[in-house]
Amino acid sequence: MLSAALRLLNALSLLMWPFIVLLVATHPQWHILFWPLGAVFALRWWMLRGARSEMSRLGARLALFGAIFTCCAGALRSLHLLMWYPVLVNLLLLSLFASSLRGPASLVERIARLSEPELSPQGVSYTRRVTQLWSLFFLFNGSVAAATCLAGNIHWWTLWNGGISYLLTGSLMAGEWLLRQRIRQKHENITG
């Protein structure tokens, strides 16, 4: 129960990150939020520190960096470090997806095989292309996030990292899902 509540709190912290940073930037009296937020990240890292799956290890790294970033920002009373967290998230996701392309099975293929162990050669090829697409997306998204950090405009930064980036991510997920359903249906019509 505690683990599920902590996962939910951590997910909300990640989703709300740009808005928390904006709140603190525009209302400095809210700097106190960094300490409980850092504690949530630290507790999440503690729970995931021995994780075995790639995604859980990624979650542990993100939680650890989140704790470090928020505690440093609280101690230094500086928001600039917090603005780089989305860049780090994209960099770690890019690393995870892109590095899987060097192995025998891409990350998306391994995820697909959880529900469909006997993946066809066409499915393997498709999941490889999807992994490449996500890698390019994380490279693009992280680059724009870095540009907004360098620009130093908190409103542009929040617009990108708390709005446009989320819309693009959701659109890519939905578009890929629709395409996958269409390809699956076409394949079933050919083989059926």
Rank of each mutant, 00 (worst) to 15 (best):
W17M: 06
I20A: 15
V24S: 04
V24N: 00
T26R: 15
P28L: 07
Q29L: 14
W30I: 07
W30C: 10
W30P: 04
H31E: 10
L33I: 04
L33C: 06
L33D: 00
L33Y: 01
L33S: 01
W35H: 10
P36G: 00
P36Y: 05
P36W: 02
G38E: 01
A39Q: 09
F41A: 13
A42K: 04
A42M: 10
L43T: 09
L43A: 15
L43E: 04
W45S: 02
W45D: 03
W46P: 01
W46D: 05
L48W: 00
R49K: 13
R49W: 09
A51C: 05
R52Y: 10
S53P: 06
E54K: 12
E54N: 11
S56I: 09
S56Y: 14
S56V: 09
R57I: 01
L58K: 05
L58A: 05
G59E: 02
L62D: 05
L62V: 08
A63N: 03
F65L: 15
I68G: 00
F69T: 04
F69L: 08
T70V: 07
C71M: 14
C71D: 11
C72F: 12
A73V: 01
A73N: 04
A73L: 05
R77V: 12
S78W: 09
L79R: 06
L79G: 13
L79D: 05
H80S: 13
H80C: 11
L81M: 09
M83I: 08
M83C: 13
W84I: 06
W84F: 15
P86C: 06
P86Q: 04
P86F: 02
V87K: 00
L88Q: 04
L88R: 03
N90Y: 03
N90K: 02
N90A: 07
L91G: 14
L93D: 01
L93R: 00
S95E: 11
S95D: 11
S95K: 13
L96P: 00
S99K: 10
S100Q: 04
L101S: 08
R102V: 14
G103R: 13
A105G: 07
A105D: 12
S106E: 02
S106G: 13
V108C: 05
A112C: 08
A112M: 09
A112I: 06
R113L: 04
R113F: 04
R113G: 02
L114A: 12
S115M: 12
E116K: 14
E116S: 15
E116R: 14
P117H: 06
E118D: 14
E118H: 15
E118S: 14
S120C: 10
Q122C: 09
Q122N: 11
Q122E: 15
V124P: 07
V124M: 12
S125Y: 11
T127P: 02
T127L: 01
T127W: 00
R128G: 09
R129M: 12
R129G: 10
R129Y: 15
V130W: 04
L133N: 05
W134I: 00
W134S: 01
S135R: 00
S135M: 06
S135F: 01
S135N: 07
F138I: 03
L139K: 03
L139Y: 06
F140Q: 05
F140H: 05
F140S: 07
N141I: 03
S143C: 10
S143Q: 08
V144G: 06
V144Q: 07
V144S: 05
V144L: 13
A146R: 03
A146M: 13
A147E: 09
C149Q: 01
L150Q: 11
